[in-house]
Each structure stands twice: as C-alpha cells, then as structure tokens.
C-alpha cells in the first residue's frame, strides 16, 4: 500500500529529515512511527500525501509512483488518504456536522451522499448527539473524534495520524486508539506517528523507529523501545 525506496529528504540549511529510508507497508497494516522529535516521523507522513517531495528515492502509494504524479492529480491521491493531526485542524466557525460535511462537499460529493454519510460516520465515532455543537464546545478527545470522522468519512485506503493523542490525557487517548483500531479493522491502512510509549506497548503492532532520519528498527508486534 505504501512503499518507500531509498528515500531522502533534506530541508533548507542541510537539515536531513529522512536519509535513505526504505520500507513497505501492506494493505490493512497498523504501523507506529516512533522516534525523538526531529527524527523524521512527520516528514515520512508528509511525503506519503505529497505535501513534500523527496530529493532522492521513489515513493509508491497504492501501486502508483507519486513522484511522477502531476500536480493536478495530487488532490485525487489525497482523497485516498485521510489525515489526522495533533491540533485537530477543525474549522471553529462550523459545527461538528459541517466540519465533516465540508470534507465531502469540497470534493464534489452529491448532497444526498453527504446527508447519509456524515451522520453515519458521526455515529461511528460516538458523536451523533453533538452534531450541532461547535468545536470549542467539545473536549479535546471529542474534537479529535471529529477530525478522525472528517478524515475517514470518504473511506480512504490509508489513514495518516501525526501524534493524534499528543494533546490528550491517557484515558481519552485510549478511546481514540480504540477508534483508530476499529477503523484499521475495516481494512484501512493506518500509519501513526507517536511519542506515547504506553499506547505502543499496549497495542503491540508493527513499530518503525526513526533516528535522525534513518530507520533503525522495524519490528512486527513491537514495543516503544
């Protein structure tokens, strides 16, 4: 589903974010990316949905070489990839329903699809009763559920999560992880960058550890360190 071949990414000022990284993630896998801040976890995720382009190497997503993808096709790549962030990136002037509906509207989905899909996904994430609330009326955990609903409402093949529990307390984080696990069980490939040791150790999924841009460990059913 995701394949990196000898990928290097260097930012301005010779900051090496990723160095000669090669890795393959199969369809339906759940992968943790771990490593210190600045080890290249976020760059890894940004390369997969082509927010960044690598200096060297090739990246395949769903069998396609995305380096050669013309820029007008990038939006169609991203429709297959859901993204979740530490800071949720919700629109504060839109309700929960509108935030999720927005993701379908802007890719031109017909209104009847929006009307059926949005309540269904909000039911799935457990926010059916808060549809008409605004993000600032929700707890952090609830906001992250909205953002996951938005990422998943279009049923993408891949879900990328960049420290989704980074702003949440441990109990709330467990709830979010259950949700991500449930999404993974529908066949969606999940790649999650995290610093959360207890989550990684509890879930026992594949762990890829990065250190200063290099992959130093790739372990199935791994632990944080």
């Amino acid at each position: 589903m995701i394949k990196l071949e000898n990928v290097s990414k260097v930012y301005k000022g010779d900051v090496t974010a990723l160095h000669d990284a090669s890795v393959e993630v199969q369809k339906g896998e759940f992968v943790f990316l771990v490593g210190a801040s600045g080890s290249g976890k976020s760059t890894f995720l940004r390369l997969v949905n082509k927010e960044e382009t690598p200096e060297h190497g090739r990246i395949y997503v769903a069998g396609k070489d995305i380096n050669t993808l013309s820029s007008w096709k990038v939006p169609y790549l991203r429709r297959n990839i859901g993204s979740v962030f530490q800071d949720f990136k919700l629109l504060i002037n839109k309700t929960v329903y509108e935030n999720v509906a927005f993701a379908l509207e802007v890719i031109g989905r017909p209104r009847h699809v929006v009307r059926t899909q949005v309540p269904a996904i909000l039911e799935l994430v457990g926010l059916a009763k808060k549809m008409d609330n605004f993000p600032n009326e929700l707890s952090g955990g609830e906001q992250q559920r909205v953002s996951i609903a938005r990422a998943f409402v279009n049923r993408p093949l891949i879900l990328l999560a960049d420290e989704p529990t980074g702003n949440l307390d441990p109990a709330t984080s467990v709830g979010i992880m259950r949700l991500l696990d449930r999404i993974n069980r529908t066949g969606t490939t999940v790649v999650m960058a995290t610093h959360d040791r207890s989550i990684v150790d509890t879930m026992r999924r594949r762990v890829i550890e990065l250190d200063r841009g290099s992959i130093i460990r790739d372990q199935s059913r791994g632990v944080y360190e």
């Binding site: 802007v106 890719i107 031109g108 938005r150």
Partner: peptide, 17 residues
C-alpha cells in the same frame, strides 16, 4: 487559510479552491 488548508488536505482540486 484554515479552510484552504483543510480543503487541500481532503483533496479538493486546485480549481475548486
């Protein structure tokens, strides 16, 4: 800018934005 960021993220086409 926040709407635009989200639109890009979920795959709205350039012309749509």
């Amino acid at each position: 800018r926040r709407e635009i960021e989200v639109m890009k993220l979920v795959g709205a086409t350039n012309w749509f934005i």
